[in-house]
Amino acid sequence: MKIVIAPDSFKGSLTAKQAAGAIYAGVKRVFPDADYEVVPMADGGEGTVQSLVDATNGHFKTAEVLNPLGEPVSAEYGFLGDGQTAVIEMAAASGIQFVNETTKNPLITTTYGTGQLMLDAMHHGAKEIIIGIGGSATTDGGQGMAEALGVKFLTAAGTPIARGGGGLADLATIDTSGLDPLVKTTTVRIASDVTNPLVGAKGSAAVFGPQKGATPAMVATLDANLTHYAAVINQTLGRNLAEFPGAGAAGGLGAGLLAFTQSQMESGIEIVVRETRLKERARNADLAFTGEGAIDFQTQYGKTPMGTAQAVKMASPQAKVIGLAGNVGEGIDQLYDLGIDAIFGILPGVVDLSTAIQTGEANLTRTAENIARVIK
């Protein structure tokens, strides 16, 4: 029997590698002689760096960068096992965790630190960068990121504009002559399932601005500034990104990456499936386990358990895919026709969240073992 174990992290409780290990421990008690493929997974969001480094025997690096408020912090990113592909989560440098109710302000928060991470990776030999762009504290259109890479954003007087979404109002010209030469020879793969445009009713400011601290008045200002920013990019580079699907991801970082780097948008889970060689490793599988902290109707929209299940089914249509979750929500019936054969909650009874998090490993191992016993 061949068994694939490929979960995402259980947020706040277990990394994807730890979750995979817990499932493996339970199933192996029942099928000690099975052929196992253990593949930690992610979908481009939090935990992607950890999962890809673990799955490819890569390594981590740390760089000193600026957080969204311009304060120095240490941020971690990874290199895959090939030594030439870096994987970065923009949140490591520019994430919402760096601000609080008092300090969050998308008029001033910047993606400059994300650009610093990218540049550090390039100068350490990265020929390709995978960048997950969820969890941002910013709405600067990726201006800060591009500035860190060497692009100059200037006022009519020829002085640098202020960083942050507010500074874009003063943008008159963009000078790319100082762009680091490595940017032109480095491929950037943007891991995002967000399809929002940069501006408008479904744009970055309107949809995501409020959760980053934007008042209704700020939303209007930011949307106008991003509209102006897109117009200057179009005039300077001939790239019309205002309505481009995904350009509004991470406060418009998607637009900045598309404008100033050699980049393309990709599904986060598809990138992880490809880099971990999940399909190849799942060939001739009889059984597969996946999962994450919660499984519900949203799982079908690019989440790890669904992407994993579909990849396994493509490689081995006969394989049965089991989903495990700390919380099983509504709408899971929709998932049974899309690749997941059965879904199980791992909690032994009614417990508070703190207890569920603390006992996640034991609960996952026990549930996986019991499912394996039924199958046996």
Rank of each mutant, 00 (worst) to 15 (best):
K279G: 03
K279T: 09
E280F: 01
E280P: 01
E280I: 00
R281S: 03
A282V: 03
A282E: 12
R283N: 02
R283F: 00
R283C: 02
R283W: 00
N284E: 14
N284Y: 10
A285L: 05
A285N: 10
A285R: 11
A285M: 09
A285T: 11
D286I: 00
D286T: 11
D286R: 12
L287Y: 13
A288E: 06
A288D: 11
A288C: 14
F289T: 02
F289M: 09
T290P: 06
G291A: 07
G291I: 02
G291D: 13
G291S: 12
G291L: 04
G291Q: 13
E292A: 07
E292D: 06
G293C: 06
G293P: 06
A294D: 00
A294I: 02
A294C: 13
A294P: 00
D296V: 04
D296M: 08
D296T: 05
F297I: 02
F297C: 03
Q298H: 10
Q298L: 03
Q298K: 05
Q298I: 01
T299S: 13
T299K: 06
T299C: 07
T299E: 05
Q300L: 12
Q300A: 15
Q300W: 00
Y301F: 15
G302H: 04
G302K: 12
G302F: 01
G302S: 09
G302Q: 06
K303I: 00
K303T: 01
K303G: 01
K303S: 01
K303F: 01
T304L: 11
T304M: 03
T304D: 03
T304F: 04
T304Q: 06
P305N: 09
P305T: 10
P305W: 13
P305I: 07
M306C: 02
M306E: 03
M306L: 10
M306V: 02
M306N: 06
G307S: 07
G307W: 11
G307V: 04
G307A: 10
G307C: 06
T308G: 03
A309T: 05
A309P: 02
A309W: 08
Q310M: 08
A311T: 03
A311D: 10
V312S: 09
V312F: 10
K313F: 07
M314R: 15
A315L: 07
A315W: 13
P317D: 09
Q318P: 00
Q318M: 04
Q318R: 15
Q318Y: 01
Q318V: 01
Q318G: 14
A319G: 07
A319N: 13
A319P: 07
K320D: 01
V321R: 14
V321I: 15
V321K: 14
V321M: 12
V321C: 13
V321P: 05
I322C: 05
I322G: 05
G323F: 12
G323Y: 11
L324S: 11
A325I: 02
A325F: 12
G326W: 03
G326I: 04
G326E: 03
G326N: 11
N327R: 15
N327P: 00
N327C: 01
V328H: 10
V328M: 09
G329L: 09
G329Y: 09
G329V: 04
G329N: 12
G329M: 11
E330S: 15
E330N: 14
E330Q: 15
E330R: 14
E330F: 12
E330Y: 11
G331V: 05
